[in-house]
Amino acid sequence: MDPILKIENVTKNYIGHRALDNVSMEIPRGSIYGLLGPNGAGKTTLIRVINRMTMPDCGNVWFEDHPITTNDIYSIGYMPEERGLYKKMKIGAQAVFFARMHGMSKSDATKKLREWFDRMELSQWWDSKVEDISKGMAQKVQFISTIVHEPKLLIFDEPFSGFDPINANILKEEIKRLRDNGSTVILSTHNMESVEEICDDITLINKSQNVLSGPVDEIRRKAGGNTFSVTYNGSSEDFINAVTGIASLIGNSKPVTGGYMQQKIHIASDDDVRTVIGNLNTNVCLRSFQEIIPSMNDIFIRAVNGTL
């Protein structure tokens, strides 16, 4: 599918520090795109480059089929990491204000926002000020203000920070729904579980460089490297005899609950998987045969440590 946003060889230097080093990526239209990386890796700088809040020293950002312009920016939704709401303004009024700034009419904005406030159980706080509501509620207001004008492209910087698990789930569902309705979502996050749950594609930035890019499923499968976990009933000698020559053992068989044994193996060639299963089936009583797919958390740590 054609990318909605294309980042080409973007480099950004600050005094004595390179924040982005020749970073490229393509964000597919209609996807949820995760921007991962340790603190200070350059995620926020990249977002600020996309938003044209800071200009790259070299490289380009393409939106649809042209270099991104400020007018494109005015049509996106952006939720910064440090939340931006007026402390002393009623939350309903300021949500209407932000929506109108994004081009909605007053009546349209009010109507849509009332619906959203209902949905997020904020209705009774419409006339409260930010300083009088909880941090979680303020986060919801911020979220609603970001999406109410139904932008084509949404950028969330650490959207789940400050949310309890219940509200974080509500947020995840809403983000998925936005994608299903046609929006493209870019989110930066440290929360690797949420990446597995909602991201279609990711880019991992480490030390200002793009170290890993691609669809989440593909990345996890590749990182697994054809490793399998086998649970069986029988002797470990029989097991070893069955796989010798076609698969290599990782460690030794260990007893697991139920009196079974478990063994990790590596099968170099996809074609050999069936042979291994066949051989095992004749030699031992197979209970389970499963590919080990590493969690995003593992991948994140391995990628950052350079051991992926």
Binding site: N51, M53, Y78, E82, G84
Partner: peptide, 16 residues
Amino acid sequence: EEKQTRVLDVILTSCS
């Protein structure tokens, strides 16, 4: 105040 509360970052994605 808008700069401190980061309201600026939000507003400046909707106007110059």
